[in-house]
């Protein structure tokens, strides 16, 4: 028996040896800190130091204080809006590049799509402020063409500007997974559907879209999860009514020095995201069968 398992054991040993450095790195600098964050969220904030008393007070504060509750709710709504807008806007682009562009020119189109994202994120966000501001590019343009007589004020320093800026920032993260999923679709399946009597539009609904779902699901998660924790965009273009949970966390950590409450806010936000993502996966799982 000992010799039987030898091959598999040797292989496992080789694999474990290789995976050890990145795995240990992630354990020490990711898993352990996350666990410590959980621990902190149950401790009590004292003056200058943290008191080792177990308490739910931080969570109570985070979930009942109208200020924190309002910001968390807004973060969630913004994230959901951004996700829907980004994925809906991105799908036709991915579809165009995958289905209507010559194979040899696809990488050029992808290149064109990704170039804007190599501009500094901070500067990009700042420029949205320039575009959407009271004296901004958009208002100036609209006034010049006589479409409006006074600058629009609902563009900047509110939820709208945060959603527009984030939908711009996360565009490639939505386009690329959908594009990859569309590329994997065997084109003869679409011909088969039409051969069996379905129109192009019905074929899209019955064949293309279900097969592209793994990419759509990936795009949704990869946009939804990080946006809720975005700091720069609400800070620069959100104004007072556009604040999100990351700004609160930063405030608790770097300004008010209240680590336990900051941790409780961070864990709460992650928990909300995790629950919503899990529900979303539950509803879409039938499309994910047979894929990784």
């Amino acid at each position: 028996m000992a010799r039987r398992a030898q091959g598999a054991e040797a292989e496992a040993k080789g694999g474990l040896l290789l995976i050890a450095p990145p795995a240990i790195y992630a354990l020490l600098l990711l898993l352990a800190p996350l666990l410590l964050l959980v621990v902190y969220s149950f401790l009590t904030d004292g003056y200058l130091e943290i008191v080792r008393d177990f308490t739910f007070a931080n969570y109570h504060e985070a979930w009942t204080n109208p200020l924190y509750r309002g910001v968390m709710l807004r973060s969630l709504i913004v994230s959901l809006l951004v996700t829907v807008a980004t994925v809906l806007l991105a799908f036709p682009v991915a579809y165009f590049v995958s289905f209507h562009v010559e194979p040899s020119r696809k990488s050029t189109w992808l290149f064109l799509i990704t170039i804007p994202f190599w501009t500094s994120y901070l500067i990009r966000v700042f420029l949205w402020k320039v575009i959407l501001g009271y004296n901004g590019v958009l208002n100036a343009g609209l006034m010049k063409f006589g479409l409006i007589s006074e600058p629009l004020t609902f563009l900047l320093y509110n939820t709208n500007s945060v959603v527009i800026t984030l939908a711009h920032a996360y565009a490639p993260f939505a386009i690329l997974p959908i594009f990859v999923a569309l590329e994997k679709i065997d084109r003869s399946l679409l011909e088969a559907s039409q051969d069996l009597g379905e129109s192009r539009i019905v074929t899209f609904g019955r064949v293309t879209l279900p097969l592209a779902m793994p990419g759509v699901v990936a795009a949704v998660l990869i946009v939804f999860i990080p946006t809720i924790g975005d700091y720069v965009t609400p800070q620069l273009v959100g104004g007072p009514e556009g604040r999100m949970v990351a700004n609160l966390i930063q405030l608790q950590y770097l300004r008010l020095d209240n680590y336990p409450l900051g941790s409780a806010l961070a864990i709460s936000a992650m928990g909300i995201v995790a629950v919503i993502s899990a529900i979303f996966l539950l509803f879409t799982r039938r499309y994910l069968k047979g894929t990784k």
Partner: peptide, 26 residues
């Protein structure tokens, strides 16, 4: 393999602020 790779790939979807504060605490 699956849980280890999952952990290593986690920062791909984790908000950066979470990574930042948890590391800061440690």
């Amino acid at each position: 393999k699956a849980p280890v790779m999952g952990l290593i790939m986690l920062p791909l979807v984790l908000p950066e602020i979470i990574v930042a504060v948890s590391l800061l605490v440690v």
